[in-house]
Structures are given as structure tokens and as C-alpha cells.
Design a protein around this nucleic acid. Structure first.
Length: 800
DNA sequence: GAGTTTGAAACT
DNA sequence: CAGTTTCAAACTC
């Protein structure tokens, strides 16, 4: 498996990762030799289930071992200490179990090689299969049920009596221990009967080995339980790959880490397929010259054959999405990387590919079917190329997965996710004049086909929008119940994308086909993404030195119209004050910039996801009127700012183009020949302009100086206040409060308390007591001031 | 902060 | 396409 870069991980908009709810689990059809394994899932995703309904999390009929290993391993629990849990078992209310599951949302699909049964589980599914818990060790051992029951679907599992069957354990689930390190254990399909006991016991004492996949750059090899006679034994080395997520920084030590989810459906253990039953992750050796990530989507006939089936995955919790993140680590030793991820896209999983743009070489992300006969064609579309880096989108031409990645040069966000909604069968249709844009975006369209997503982006509880204005936690639902196929990308701050997408403003739902169902694509501004990251369930945080953007002001932006990123980021967009336009016309700067209103002062604002329909309509109207309405007005010159110019030119008549009324002047560019201004003074040799510029520069310098002075003063004040011990002044005076140290404060309080006590003992009236206390306080102050003066004199005497 | 000016956007 | 109106930002007081 690949490494999820902490940088990328931290920058990943979590809500994108979070939202597919799968309501049902189509498992029953998975018979025969089909082996499915979904292995790693995100962690630290809150579990829906309470203790009483400890039935979700991990299901496995074939023996899944969930081993949340904590840092503080309690006494190892032996087989006797393990608690078997099942639906029928009320012992599931163990807090330990809950806690373990809470950190383990592994999604697994396993198939017993012997019985041929398949079990599909999801991290958010209810834990219906019997499993054993080693509470002391914080381990959960899921035992496969009897073969007769194994053929049933997951729904049948809850009703089945739990049977601890230790053979055939194959799949190990990733969890997070206290240390935040997820661990994946690999067990052979035909485990020995000592599995339970061994697993619960001291792992290191076990002779067979399984690999523990950890996060934090540490991989451990741990004994594999049983499986000595397993035909899969030879595959173990391949079956278990390390999910190595870069070390977490101390800053975000508690931050959850995204996992790369692997779902495997092995049909007949096809040799072509790298997916092996019980295999958690596979990583093939680099074979391509270009760095590539391959998502292998195994054919899940059972799932696809059940259109109505859904897999219940809480949007809040999980992860029915597959996150594929390129190895962020810039190790040149491994420039090529191919990650094969079996993905059952029919489950509505999403694949998110994040790639660093720093890579000079283009990155390919290929999604395909695992089974050879079902390998879907992939379309690679070069959306654009800026600055030498590629802006490439490679998407499957066929139905799944509905994901495409976009690599945006200079941006840390390089992703596009498509969320397929329930009625996703429509095709995207170009919207009006924005034909070229649609053409550009066309590759992004993914035919949803028969894919049936259980949830739109968000059911009521899932992805929520932190309302632009009311930055409240209760936010607006990102996607209303209307089921749409969306394209989410941080387009707003990426002006370079816009030309590529031609006229697509951020937030645009790409060509919602009228009459073709509620299918469309939404380009969500990065600010929105950022907001979503702040939602409670999006707990993924940076595990690296990168600080995750916490607000719109800190989000990564690409250079805007030639203006440096720093400038763009350091100067947050002004809030609009629209009153009549509903922020749905180009009068509104927010709307014109393709952003949602956020912290604006507008009235009756419709520029938010709550009014997505209206907004989309307005966008379409604008595009109808002017296909380039959302293009940057200031074209970026080929070489430097000198070539920057207004795309349309200004029409100023009274301002002389020397006020901010003039768009050219506002953009700090000179008027050009295409301007229709009257009395223009905004040209190179204009003395008025030079004077203005000088004045402006001087003013800016003053502002900077003032800011620096304020910062320095603030810093000094903070420093003073932070000191708990007096500092001998270096010549200058030192305020008396500097001498109010902790000790002085305590002494003063003691004096006051003593005075109060004395007054109380003497039965003084309250007024008198208060007076005495105040007097005492005055005395204390005087002593402090006196001490301060002495210290100053002393210091002066020693010439310090 | 209220009122005015300005020019882009929207409309006819 | 031109003229007019609307609109919100920029500006002034």
C-alpha cells in the first residue's frame, strides 16, 4: 500500500472523504470463489453505534481480526478472557469494545477459500458477525461463523448464532491504538484454532508471523496466527502490505489519519488480479516510467447485480471511500509507484487521489477493474498545463468509479471527486454558451451508469456546510437530499483552473442535465472545503509539519491573476454588502469570483449551498450572457506582470482610471488599447499615476511600519505578561506590575485573607471588614511599588 | 456612518 | 450594439 502523505493528508478536504453512506450491504450474492476484501479504512471516525448496538464496525464471517493495539497494552487476555460478541450477545456493551471499534472502521471483505463464502463488511456497518474481544488487550477478534451461515448475507449474520470458528481467518483490520497507529494484521485463511488465544495474547510470542501495519512510519512484523497449512501462506508476503502513513507531528499527534481503503473482490482467485483473498493491500512493483497510481477495482458481481442494495455507511463515519494518495514523500528513489487498490465502486466508494504538484513528472491515476475482463477503459485528459506541471485528469470511461483526479499545479489540492447519487444515470449536458467549458470538463463527467449510491453527498448528518455567514457548527447541508453527482474541487482559489475549465465558476454544478435527473457536478470552492474540514466529524488533521488550513484565509491558493499567492492569501476577500442582487449576480464580488459568501454583510444571500439551485441557475444565466463571465478579468501575461491586462478593458470616464473604480487601476495594471476609458491617466508615463503610485507606496510603507510596530509592541507586552519573575530593567523604567510575580500575588492574597479572617474573628461588620481588606490591599500595593523602586535603584547602582 | 460618485453589470 | 437602469464598491464628508 502506499503512503499517505501527511502533507497531503492534512490538506485533504475531509468532507470529501467522508460522505458516502451506504445503507445496506450487498453481500449475499458473493458466493463461490469470490473473495472480497476491503481492508483499511479510515480511522478515528466516530462510530454510530452505541454500546448497546455494538454491531457495527467490522463484520466478518470468515474470521476477521481486529486488533486495535494501544500504547498501553493491558494484561494480555487469553482466550478465556476474550469476550465473544455477536448480535445476540449483550456482552457487546463493553466499553472496551466500543472504544476499540470506535477507532476501527475497517472495511473488510473476506472470502473463505474453503467454503467459498464471501463476507463484505464495512467500517460503518454494524458489527454483526461474531467476534471476540480481548478487552484487556483492546483487541477484537472476529471469528468466522459456520460455513452454513457464511453464505448468508450480512443481514443474516445478526440473526445467526455466533460461532467461533478460528479457521479461515484471513483478514485483519486496521485500527488505531492510542498511539494513533493503525494496525493491520494478516492472518492466513485457515487459521489454527489457537487464533483467538494467540491473538489476544502476547503477539510477539507467536511464532507465525503476520504483518502489522502501522502508522507513523513504523512497521512491525508480528506473528501470524495459524495458517501454517494454508495455501495462502505463500501469499502472505504479498497479501500484507504496509500502510505507512507518515509520522505524525507532535502538533497533530491526535489527529486522525486517513487510511487508504482497499476493497478486494477476488473472483476465483484470478491470477491476473493482484488482489488476493484476505489481502489488505497490494503494491505492485513499479513498472511504469511515470509515477502512477492504479486503482484496481475488482468486479463485484454480487454487488453490481443488486442495484437496490446499499451498504450502510454513515457519512459521518466513513469511509466508503477509497483514498488514494500518492506517496508524498519525495523520495526520489521511488519515483514510480503503482498502487493497486481493489475497489468496489458499486458500494459508492469514492476514490480520491491527491498528488503533489511538486512532482515534475505527470502523475497518472488510473482506475480500472481488477478483473481482467472488466478492466474499464480509462480516459486521460489533459485539462491543462501550467508552469510545466500537468493538470491531468484520468477517468474511467465507464461507470465506476466516479472519481477523477485533477492535478492542479501549485495547489495542494489536487483532487476532484464525483459523488454519485441515487439516480445517477444521467449524462452531463453542456450548459448553454459555456460549451467550451463543458467540453473541457467533459472528461470529468463520469457516467454513473447503474451505480447507485445510497446517499448523496450528505444526508442530514453528513457533510455539512458551515454556512458562510454564520460560521456555526450547525451548518447547512452541503447536498440536499437531491441526489446529484457532484464534482468537488477547490476551484475558487485556483484561477488557473478556470481557464482550463473555461468558464466554470467554482461552485458550479456542471451541466445539470435538465430532465435527466438530478445529476450534476458541483465545484465547491475551497473555502467551502475548508469549512467542511472544520466539521466535527472531519477530524482528519495534519500529521505533518503542514498546518491544515483552518480558515479561508489560510487556505492554499494559486496565484491569482499573476498576483502572488501570498498576496491573495494574506488579504482575505472582502465581504460583500449586496442587498438586492441576492449575491447571484456579478455585482457581487463573491459570486463573480466563484466563491460562496462567507462572513459577508449581504442581505438575502443566495450565494450559498442552501440555495444551490438558484445559484446554479444564476451561474448559468451569467454564462449564457457571457461565456467568459467567470474568467479572470485580468489576463495573465506570458512573461511577468507587464503583460497583464484587463481582458475587456475599462470604460472609465470620470475617474481618469486613477481610482479604484477603474478595474485596471484596481488590479494595479495600466490601461491598454482595449480600454475605452476617457481621460485616462493610467498609463506608464502619466505623472499623475506616478504621483499616485508614490503616494500609495508611501502609505503602504507607513502601514507596514505601523503594523510592525504594533506587532512588536504586542509581542513585548505579551512577553512582559508572560514573565513571572521580575526582570531587572536595563536602564529604562519597569512598570510595577512587572514585580507582581506569582509569589507576590500569593503573598498578597494571604495578607488579604488573613485580614478578612481577622475581621471575621472580631465580628466586625461587613462594611468595616471590607474597608480593612481594602486597606490591606493598599498596603500590599505600596510594598510592591516600593520593592519595584528599590529594584530599579539597585539595578542602576550595579549598572546593569 | 451616511451620502455621493463611479463604472460594471444588467436590462431594454 | 447602444442607451438606460441597476447595483455595489469606492469614495467623500
Amino acid at each position: 500500500m502506499d503512503v499517505v502523505s501527511p502533507e497531503l493528508n492534512s490538506l485533504l478536504p475531509d468532507e470529501i472523504m467522508d460522505t458516502e453512506a451506504i445503507e445496506d450491504l450487498p453481500q449475499s450474492q458473493a458466493h463461490g470463489a469470490t473473495a472480497q476484501s476491503k481492508a483499511i479504512d479510515e480511522t478515528l471516525v466516530p462510530m454510530e453505534t452505541g454500546e448497546g448496538e455494538l454491531s457495527s464496525g467490522v463484520t466478518s464471517e470468515e474470521g476477521t481480526v481486529v486488533t486495535p493495539i494501544s500504547k498501553d497494552p493491558s494484561p494480555c487476555s487469553s482466550a478465556e478472557n476474550q469476550i465473544s460478541l455477536s448480535n445476540s450477545s449483550k456482552s457487546s456493551s463493553l466499553p472496551m469494545v466500543k472504544r476499540s471499534l470506535a477507532t476501527s472502521t475497517a472495511t473488510t471483505k473476506t472470502t473463505d477459500s474453503v467454503t467459498g463464502t464471501t463476507v463484505s463488511t464495512s467500517g460503518l456497518q454494524k458489527l454483526t458477525s461474531p467476534f471476540t474481544i480481548s478487552a484487556a488487550n483492546r483487541q477484537i477478534i472476529l471469528n468466522k461463523v459456520a460455513s452454513a451461515q457464511a453464505g448468508d448475507t450480512a443481514k443474516s449474520v445478526p440473526t445467526s448464532h455466533q460461532v467461533i470458528k478460528q479457521e479461515g481467518q484471513k483478514l485483519l483490520v486496521t485500527t488505531l491504538g492510542k498511539s494513533g497507529q493503525p494496525i493491520v494484521l494478516q492472518l492466513p485463511p485457515t487459521g489454527s484454532k489457537a487464533v483467538v488465544g494467540q491473538t489476544s495474547g502476547d503477539l510477539k510470542t507467536q511464532t507465525p508471523q503476520f504483518k502489522v501495519v502501522t502508522i507513523g512510519g513504523r512497521t512491525e512484523l508480528k506473528p501470524i496466527v495459524g495458517g501454517t497449512t494454508n495455501q495462502m501462506a505463500t501469499l502472505q508476503a504479498q497479501q500484507l502490505k504496509t500502510v505507512q502513513i507518515a509520522k505524525k507531528t507532535p502538533v497533530s499527534s491526535s489527529a486522525p489519519i486517513k487510511f487508504i481503503i482497499t476493497k478486494t473482490v477476488n473472483k476465483g482467485a484470478s491470477p491476473q488480479s493482484p488482489v488476493i483473498a484476505g489481502r489488505v493491500l497490494t503494491q505492485s512493483s513499479p513498472v511504469l516510467p511515470a509515477r502512477s497510481i492504479t486503482l484496481t477495482e475488482p468486479l463485484n458481481t454480487s454487488l453490481q447485480s443488486i442495484p437496490g442494495k446499499k451498504i450502510a455507511i454513515s457519512p459521518l463515519k466513513t469511509p466508503s471511500k477509497v483514498t488514494v494518495v500518492s506517496v508524498a514523500s519525495p523520495t526520489q528513489s521511488a519515483p514510480q509507484k503503482t498502487v493497486t487498490l481493489p475497489v468496489n465502486v458499486a458500494l459508492g466508494q469514492q476514490i480520491l487521489a491527491v498528488q503533489q504538484s511538486t512532482s515534475a513528472s505527470p502523475v497518472k491515476v488510473v482506475t480500472s477493474q481488477a478483473t481482467v475482463q472488466n478492466v474499464k477503459p480509462v480516459q486521460s485528459v489533459a485539462v491543462g498545463s501550467v508552469g510545466g506541471s500537468q493538470f491531468k485528469t484520468i477517468i474511467p470511461l465507464s461507470t465506476q468509479p466516479n472519481v477523477q483526479q485533477i492535478q492542479v499545479p501549485g495547489s495542494r489540492f489536487h483532487y476532484v471527486r464525483l459523488v454519485t447519487a441515487t439516480t445517477a444515470s444521467s449524462t452531463v449536458q453542456p450548459s448553454g454558451p459555456s460549451t467550451n467549458s463543458v467540453q473541457t470538463a467533459k472528461p470529468m463527467l463520469v457516467n454513473a451508469g447503474a451505480v447507485r449510491m445510497s446517499v448523496p453527498i450528505v444526508p442530514a448528518q453528513s457533510v455539512k456546510q458551515v454556512a458562510p455567514k454564520p460560521l456555526t457548527t450547525t451548518a447547512q447541508v452541503v447536498s440536499t437530499p437531491q441526489t446529484q453527482q457532484r464534482l468537488i474541487m477547490p476551484a475558487t482559489p485556483l484561477p488557473q483552473i478556470q481557464p482550463n475549465f473555461t468558464n466554470l465558476p467554482p461552485g458550479t454544478v456542471l451541466a445539470p442535465a435538465p430532465g435527466a435527473g438530478n445529476v450534476g457536478y458541483a465545484v465547491v470552492p475551497a473555502q467551502y472545503v475548508t469549512q467542511l474540514q472544520q466539521t466535527p466529524f472531519v477530524t482528519l488533521a495534519s500529521s505533518s509539519g503542514f498546518s491544515a488550513p483552518s480558515s479561508i484565509q489560510t487556505q492554499a491558493r494559486l496565484p491569482l491573476n499573476g498576483v502572488s499567492t501570498t498576496e491573495s492569501t494574506s488579504r482575505p476577500r472582502k465581504p460583500c454588502n449586496c442587498t438586492k442582487s441576492q449575491c447571484l449576480k456579478l455585482y457581487c464580488d463573491c459570486f463573480a469570483n466563484g466563491e460562496f459568501c462567507n462572513n459577508c454583510n449581504c442581505n438575502n444571500c443566495f450565494n450559498n449551498l442552501e440555495h444551490e439551485t438558484e445559484r446554479l441557475k444564476a451561474i448559468k444565466t451569467c454564462l449564457d450572457r457571457n461565456p467568459e463571465a467567470f474568467k479572470p478579468k485580468i489576463g495573465k501575461g506570458k512573461e511577468g506582470e507587464s503583460d497583464r491586462r484587463h481582458s475587456k478593458g475599462c470604460n472609465c470616464k470620470r475617474s481618469g482610471c486613477l481610482k479604484n473604480y477603474c478595474e485596471c487601476y484596481e488590479a494595479k495594471i495600466m490601461c491598454s488599447s482595449i480600454c475605452k476609458c476617457v481621460g485616462c491617466k493610467n498609463f506608464e508615463e502619466s505623472p499623475e499615476r506616478k504621483t499616485l503610485m508614490h503616494l500609495a507606496d508611501a502609505a503602504e510603507v507607513r502601514v507596514q511600519q505601523q503594523t510592525a510596530a504594533k506587532t512588536k509592541l504586542s509581542s513585548q507586552i505579551s512577553d512582559l505578561l508572560m514573565r513571572t519573575t521580575p526582570v531587572i530593567p536595563t536602564g529604562g523604567g519597569r512598570l510595577p506590575y512587572t514585580f507582581v510575580t506569582k509569589e507576590v500575588l500569593e503573598a498578597t492574597c494571604e495578607c488579604l485573607l488573613e485580614r478578612a479572617k481577622r475581621s471575621e474573628q472580631t465580628l466586625q461588620p461587613q462594611a468595616e471588614a471590607e474597608r480593612m481588606i481594602l486597606e490591606e490591599f493598599g498596603h500590599c500595593l505600596m510594598r510592591i511599588i516600593s520593592s519595584a523602586g528599590k529594584a530599579k535603584v539597585d539595578c542602576a547602582s550595579i549598572n546593569c
